[in-house]
Amino acid sequence: SPQLSSEIENLMSQGYSYQDIQKALVIAQNNIEMAKNILREFVSIS
């Protein structure tokens, strides 16, 4: 969805990798808010 694409772009601009974002979305069943929480908790931005 376009909204999801812009959310993904936004997260990538914050330093998350596309791969990590995709993984979080799978775990969160495409719930972007939950995916963000997963990324915040489990992915360290280098």
Score class of each variant (00 low, 15 high):
44 S>M: 15
46 S>F: 01
42 F>T: 15
15 G>F: 00
37 N>M: 01
43 V>G: 13
3 Q>I: 09
45 I>D: 15
24 A>C: 07
30 N>P: 06
40 R>N: 11
46 S>K: 15
14 Q>T: 06
12 M>D: 03
16 Y>W: 09
12 M>K: 12
33 E>D: 10
46 S>G: 10
40 R>H: 14
33 E>P: 14
3 Q>P: 04
17 S>Y: 00
12 M>P: 02
16 Y>S: 05
35 A>Q: 03
38 I>E: 14
17 S>E: 15
24 A>I: 01
21 I>H: 03
25 L>D: 04
8 I>K: 05
24 A>G: 06
11 L>I: 09
42 F>G: 08
20 D>T: 06
20 D>W: 02
7 E>V: 12
15 G>D: 01
16 Y>C: 02
18 Y>V: 07
26 V>W: 03
9 E>K: 07
37 N>S: 10
1 S>M: 01
25 L>C: 03
38 I>W: 15
30 N>D: 11
36 K>Y: 02
33 E>R: 09
8 I>C: 05
20 D>M: 04
3 Q>M: 15
37 N>V: 08
34 M>T: 15
41 E>C: 02
4 L>A: 03
12 M>I: 12
31 N>P: 01
1 S>G: 04
39 L>V: 06
38 I>P: 06
4 L>T: 09
45 I>K: 13
17 S>M: 05
7 E>M: 10
27 I>H: 15
20 D>R: 10
32 I>R: 11
3 Q>A: 05
5 S>P: 06
26 V>K: 13
17 S>I: 14
2 P>Y: 07
4 L>Y: 12
13 S>C: 14
5 S>L: 13
32 I>F: 06
36 K>P: 06
14 Q>R: 05
28 A>I: 01
24 A>E: 04
36 K>I: 04
15 G>V: 01
36 K>E: 08
44 S>Y: 07
14 Q>C: 05
8 I>W: 03
28 A>N: 08
42 F>D: 15
10 N>K: 13
21 I>G: 01
7 E>N: 08
15 G>I: 02
39 L>R: 03
18 Y>P: 09
27 I>R: 15
19 Q>Y: 05
9 E>S: 13
1 S>Y: 04
45 I>N: 15
36 K>M: 02
44 S>C: 04
18 Y>H: 04
10 N>S: 12
43 V>H: 15
22 Q>M: 11
25 L>A: 03
39 L>Y: 00
41 E>T: 11
30 N>T: 01
10 N>V: 11
33 E>Y: 05
33 E>C: 10
40 R>V: 08
17 S>W: 02
40 R>M: 06
7 E>A: 11
23 K>D: 13
11 L>T: 01
24 A>L: 00
3 Q>D: 14
21 I>D: 04
16 Y>N: 02
17 S>P: 10
6 S>V: 10
27 I>L: 13
7 E>Y: 07
38 I>V: 12
26 V>I: 12
38 I>D: 08
4 L>P: 03
14 Q>P: 01
26 V>E: 10
43 V>I: 12
9 E>C: 13
10 N>T: 08
10 N>W: 07
5 S>R: 12
38 I>A: 09
32 I>N: 03
17 S>F: 04
23 K>F: 06
39 L>F: 00
14 Q>G: 04
32 I>M: 10
27 I>N: 15
26 V>S: 10
29 Q>S: 09
46 S>N: 09
23 K>E: 15
45 I>W: 04
24 A>N: 04
10 N>Y: 11
41 E>I: 04
5 S>Y: 06
18 Y>I: 12
9 E>T: 11
32 I>Q: 12
6 S>Y: 05
13 S>N: 13
12 M>Y: 03
4 L>Q: 05
31 N>W: 05
6 S>R: 12
15 G>W: 00
18 Y>D: 12
10 N>F: 14
15 G>H: 05
45 I>M: 13
5 S>G: 04
16 Y>V: 04
12 M>A: 07
6 S>E: 13
37 N>C: 07
22 Q>V: 04
21 I>Y: 05
8 I>S: 02
29 Q>E: 13
10 N>Q: 10
14 Q>M: 14
31 N>M: 05
24 A>K: 03
39 L>G: 05
27 I>T: 14
33 E>I: 09
21 I>C: 07
16 Y>I: 01
32 I>T: 11
23 K>G: 12
5 S>I: 09
37 N>H: 13
29 Q>T: 06
42 F>A: 12
27 I>A: 14
3 Q>V: 09
20 D>Q: 13
23 K>T: 07
29 Q>G: 13
21 I>F: 00
11 L>C: 04
32 I>C: 08
13 S>W: 04
18 Y>G: 10
24 A>Y: 03
6 S>C: 13
31 N>T: 01
11 L>G: 01
6 S>F: 08
20 D>S: 11
34 M>I: 15
36 K>A: 07
35 A>P: 03
21 I>S: 06
3 Q>G: 09
4 L>K: 06
22 Q>G: 01
29 Q>R: 12
43 V>F: 15
14 Q>L: 11
20 D>V: 08
11 L>D: 02
32 I>G: 09
25 L>F: 07
2 P>E: 15
34 M>G: 15
18 Y>E: 13
4 L>G: 08
22 Q>C: 05
6 S>G: 08
26 V>T: 13
10 N>A: 10
9 E>Q: 12
17 S>H: 00
11 L>H: 01
10 N>G: 13
13 S>P: 03
41 E>D: 10
18 Y>F: 02
31 N>S: 07
12 M>N: 09
2 P>N: 10
6 S>A: 07
16 Y>K: 02
16 Y>R: 00
31 N>F: 00
14 Q>N: 07
1 S>L: 03
11 L>W: 07
33 E>S: 07
5 S>H: 04
31 N>Q: 09
9 E>A: 13
29 Q>C: 04
8 I>T: 03
30 N>Q: 06
23 K>I: 06
1 S>R: 04
35 A>Y: 00
20 D>H: 05
33 E>F: 04
35 A>C: 07
20 D>L: 09
24 A>T: 01
37 N>E: 08
28 A>H: 01
16 Y>G: 00
41 E>P: 03
12 M>R: 13
27 I>G: 14
8 I>H: 01
26 V>R: 13
28 A>F: 00
1 S>K: 02
14 Q>D: 14
43 V>E: 15
13 S>Q: 11
18 Y>L: 11
34 M>H: 11
14 Q>E: 13
22 Q>L: 15
30 N>C: 00
30 N>E: 04
43 V>A: 13
